[in-house]
Design a protein around this nucleic acid. Structure first.
Lengths: 373, 373
DNA sequence: TCCCTCTTGTATAACGTTAGAAACAAGGGC
DNA sequence: GCCCTTGTTTCTAACGTTATACAAGAGGGA
């Protein structure tokens, strides 16, 4: 049988509240009493019932994290970072994955775990702005990932356009001219890959290079298989890019697989750059050059946002003070952007955790690699 | 303000209990009353407070899953499967990672999330039998993974020795003779990799091939970097294996990276087999042949074990009825082994979810590949 | 008509905790 | 010696739900 405060109280010959005071380290407890109670606690092996505590206090100490899919190592690594960041604030993480389904994302935001979580960190893929605007649940919510909504919720995301431009600029500097973008989703213009595609276009334009629409590879999703399919389609269409900027590392890895099958050498024939900096990318036959978002910072900032929202539900959270600077090759210092629309009693902030362009020569080729296009 | 049963009761002009009856779909409620209450619920947007419900019922609907590290795709994929399996039983998953630290594993088993989780699924790495034997917490516990303890807890794991023997037998059939095992941890004999090493030894012995101790590659951990280091060490020591059986896919991938750097061709010079069947392994420059544990089955069986333990804490759980058959190349039908020692009021079972040896020619070479040893 | 059963709904007491008020003892100033 | 203050402990009421016991009303058989 489980032992409660009452049992301890009986054993220590003291009131329930006194035991509670000892457990919660309240002042006004005589050392003698404290010791007597502590002894009873130890002897009985008392452990507080968190459910009851939370019912009383209105907080559960649990933060939910909802990502599209754990099978994607990026989200797995991010989840690990969030768990650690939450632990530093004495929070535990309830993990859910939405499979990139709008319905599941909707369900999560509308509090299907109602009253059992204190806050929610969500990486949406399909959710629309109106879905979020219609949200009735007042559980603190933080958004992470590329999708941006003009809504009063904190949003943690790196500057995807800048990151994409940095990649393209770098490839241009290396002498590449026919730079493909792999990972556009044609079906919906506001899809996550949109910003990276925009950055690709913008930087090419800035350099006076034509953004050849035929070099945009479409995908169904962003897995390795999708990357392979897109690369194969590109090659089958007769395209011969001298560089590939993939939406993420998984797409890049799938594409490289196809390149190997077709006898295209990386980086001699094609330079490849990914996004996410997965451990996986470092240990392929060639190491993948990639954009490395600071996952630790993302996790930390997201958790802090939730914690701050909980600390004072009415006042604006002040996360900007904790944003830190990255010593990034082409990075962005972490900065809190202009607050979004005010609503729900507080402002939504755009928070940039910063990124690094991790250059690994093996997929880039040394400076001025021969171009074949 | 959050709306409670009381608010609904007032609005529907009915007692609290009646509202509760409607919410819980109890019988003995007039259609008229039910409709009146339902309307009030809809109008007020009532959502039950799970914390309160759980305090009252003694169950939280949350299962904890503790794995060594989410960064390992195997555990990420497994976690995804567990989340889905739990959802089918209306359970939510609280995820934790122990970083392979004995202290954290100990903390988890001893109920640091006391009274907030209904059950625990743990994949231990460092935990000792005596740690588990001394466990005071009576929260249902299920163990998964290679480590086996003779203790009254359900244990879900494939037959590692059989799987390892199947791998080695297959390599022998292909004509390989100098088969290295990569991923032994020398420091502790009872470490997870032990069983696979035993299988390697046993099958070689059965085939009359000397198990050359020099072909055992030691690692610090089981990451890609560890695999690379172990492979490099083996080669630096002058060993020239014609096949490598790696403890897991990550180790295999790290090893293959080193092979590529040293100009060794896979599979022509060295055949490679891994363990876990990670998506990652399918998309390397070569597809990795691997042992594929049925992760869905592992997740399902683990969740079912917890659910059954909860269903009747005193009676023995009867998971054996649900074990299913695998159409496996070299697989083991899922079978419930002999129950372990009885204790704690119930028997601990060894449950085998089954595995498949997924043969991908690219890392094996066609039949009778030339041997260099 | 009375009593008994069956159905439906209501009051009340938990579950284990924390917060606030109230009670109690001890000590000091008048 | 009395009252007031200070420090410590106890008492009681929540938090929102479900479970148990019970009350009220309807219907049927004797």
């Amino acid at each position: 049988m489980r032992v409660s405060l009452k049992d301890v109280a009986v054993r220590a010959e003291v009131s329930i509240k006194t035991v509670s005071n000892v457990v919660n380290n309240f002042k006004h407890v005589t050392p003698a009493t404290r010791q007597k109670v502590q002894q009873a606690i130890d002897e009985l092996g008392y452990q507080p019932n968190l459910t009851a505590r939370h019912l009383r206090k209105g907080r559960t100490g649990i933060i939910a994290l909802a990502v599209p899919e754990l099978e994607n190592p990026y989200f797995a690594e991010l989840a690990g970072a969030v768990i650690d960041a939450a632990a530093r604030h004495d929070y535990t993480v309830l993990l859910d994955h939405t499979q990139g389904s709008r319905e599941r994302e909707l369900l999560v935001t509308q509090g299907f775990r109602a009253r059992v979580i204190d806050g929610l960190i969500l990486n949406p893929l399909e959710l629309e702005a109106e879905d979020l605007a219609a949200r009735a649940d007042d559980t603190p919510l933080v958004l992470i990932g590329e999708r941006s909504y003009d809504l009063p919720y904190d949003h943690i995301a790196i500057d995807n356009i800048s990151a994409a431009r940095a990649v393209v600029r770098h490839l241009l500097d290396l002498g590449r001219r026919r730079i493909a973008f792999l990972g556009s989703r044609g079906d919906r213009p506001s899809q996550p890959s949109h910003l990276r595609l925009l950055g690709w276009q913008a930087e090419l334009a800035a350099a006076g290079v034509t953004a050849d629409q035929a070099l945009i590879g479409s995908v169904e999703g962003w897995s390795r298989a999708d990357g392979a399919a897109a690369m194969a389609a590109l090659l089958d269409a007769g395209q011969r890019p001298d560089a590939v900027f993939a939406y993420n590392d998984l797409v890049a890895i799938g594409a490289m697989r196809v390149m190997a099958e077709r006898g295209l050498r990386v980086p001699e024939d094609i330079a490849v750059v990914g996004f996410d900096d997965l451990s996986e990318g470092r240990f392929g036959t060639v190491s993948l050059t990639t954009v490395s978002p600071d996952k630790q910072a993302i996790a930390r900032l997201a958790v802090e946002s939730v914690v701050h929202q909980l600390a004072d539900g009415k006042a604006e959270s002040a996360t900007s003070g904790t944003a830190e600077t990255q010593d990034a090759t082409t990075g962005q210092p972490g900065r809190a952007g202009a607050p979004g629309r005010v609503g729900n009693g507080r402002a939504g902030r755009e928070i940039d955790p910063g990124f690094r362009l991790v250059e690994r020569e093996s997929t880039l080729g040394r400076v001025r690699a021969a171009t074949s296009g």
